[in-house]
Amino acid sequence: MDFILQPWSWYMSGIVIALVMFLMLYFGKVFGVSSCFRTFCAACGAGKRIKYFDFDWKSQLWNAWFLVGAIIGGFISAHFLSSGNPVLISDATIADLKNLGIAAPTGMQPDELFGLHVLASVKGWLILLGGGLLIGFGTRYGNGCTSGHAISGLSNLQLPSLIAVIGFFIGGLIMTHLLLPYLLP
């Protein structure tokens, strides 16, 4: 049982993610999460005034069910499958992050960014809300995220997906190396 409680290796993870992609295809859908943000806007009635949201969102409910499962899966991991050990990132990363004011990991996520205390800080809200805005706008503009482009799209040898994944890294490197030092609390 111990191997389940320990963090899983990259190859185990890669194999299971490919299995997830296959299962979605087998169930007649294409694995891709970010379209759920569009579905959610449409379900809230945004289709009345904006054409992008005027579609049969009920046909996309399967994606919402997938996300319900993802939430349950996260809950199961945290409560039944976790050893509670900190994330085992490299010493070089720990040193870099220390310079940015982020302490070495004590769990899955940095308390500096995701602890409940950020609710009392304007900067904390701006990072989370602003980061979300970039994710939602970028994935809909680019027509996919890590699941739809990097996994499903690249698996299907789609050129737009390769271009988008290059974009993911351009944006990620700019944020990590140029902007983050000014943004972190």
Binding site: G132, G138, R140, H149, G167, G171, M175
Partner: peptide, 10 residues
């Protein structure tokens, strides 16, 4: 779109 998402991802 990819670049904007990458900013938010990181």
């Amino acid at each position: 779109g990819g670049t904007i998402f990458g900013l938010g991802w990181a």
